[in-house]
Design a binder for these strands. Sequence first.
DNA 1: ACACGATCTTTACATCGTCAAGATTTGGCC
DNA 2: GGCCAAATCTTGACGATGTAAAGATCGTGT
Lengths: 218, 218
Amino acid sequence: MYDKGTMSTSKRRKLAYHHGDLERALIDSGLAVVKRSGIEALSLRAVARQAKVSHSAPYHHFSSKAELLAAVAAAGFDRMVEGIRQQTTGIGLDDPLEGLRAIGRGYVMFAVCHPSVFRLMFRPELTRPSKHPRLLAAETRAFRTLLETIVGAQQSGAIVGQDPRPPAAFAWSTVHGLAMLHLDGVFAETPVGQIDIQILASQINESIISGLKAHPWQ
Amino acid sequence: MYDKGTMSTSKRRKLAYHHGDLERALIDSGLAVVKRSGIEALSLRAVARQAKVSHSAPYHHFSSKAELLAAVAAAGFDRMVEGIRQQTTGIGLDDPLEGLRAIGRGYVMFAVCHPSVFRLMFRPELTRPSKHPRLLAAETRAFRTLLETIVGAQQSGAIVGQDPRPPAAFAWSTVHGLAMLHLDGVFAETPVGQIDIQILASQINESIISGLKAHPWQ
DNA sequence: ACACGATCTTTACATCGTCAAGATTTGGCC
DNA sequence: GGCCAAATCTTGACGATGTAAAGATCGTGT
């Protein structure tokens, strides 16, 4: 195994046969394809075409289509965390409930703005039989943000309880379900569909806060 | 178009060439395949094999694979509604909050017991560009159960407010997100994964009730 | 009775994921 | 500096899939 860092400068000049950093290029191509043509057009060969390499080239960096898509999904998780951080910064960190509101806003916002990427992040074929380590790590990073905010809210007394896991699962489930049901168009043909998604999201966000303040467990 | 009811008796004896009721048989075969081999094995040809017909036979009853899968998904919705009704009956209908608890229990229960069917019901390729009418109708039927329970709870004063849509969206989003995150194994590797799903579901169910009792909107 | 339409099969084609074999480049070692 | 093994990329192939066209078979109305 050679060091990628030292070779990158010499390789970036010759893109003829050896690409240089095809692994990263494939992940970016995957994001581009899924954004442009949706998740059903996200084939291994389409990603290779987008990266201008042959249809078998990805196999030298990913052992299967699932592993490539898992890497793309992990990149999506990182972008979502980044987007949520943008919602979080600028908010007074002294109020943990505002932090929770920002996370909920950012989560739904990312799903609405990048629907195909968001859906890819939760494709079941990427999670079984065993999840790609990179995807798992990205998920854990994203969840840690929520867990830490909940712990802060509990320590400051904004919400009651010592165990952050049930409140975190509750909050994550609600925003995740809202995003998924909206993206799947389940609300569209129901009376709920008449409500603007952003307004609905903020209303539901407040319901989450209400549900968190009460502490029925224990 | 001929009447299926009158011909069925004469046709059921001769299954040689004309099947008799292939449409229903294909839907049942789809449910069987997805339960046995999961959602990634649910191909049009696998469904045809299960029904013991040629791989092109489904095209005389469904215009595409998506339409066939949408019909299977609609059947799944009907079974979920039936399963939730079983949770609901036996509960005193005098308490609307108990009805909401039963719906939440039944929703998560169905997802855990029939994970592949549940996932199929929310596949994005079945919802776009336009949802199959049968799937749409089954979805609407399922949602009506929740809406009516919420209206009952509002009229009895168990929860406050006149508009049932935001509470319904909130409750549905939470149980749906919980089911999806659990099925996708997102909780599995986090601290939340140590909590049994049934216990977590009942805890979150109580949080939903708490969030519904408070009425931050309006 | 018979013709027509509905239903099912067969055949064919483009695309997909994956593997094997060959071509090309790179880095380490003398 | 030059060679060799390994890493990287391409080409070709195979089976499986979704879908369309054409042919075979059955049911039904006139």
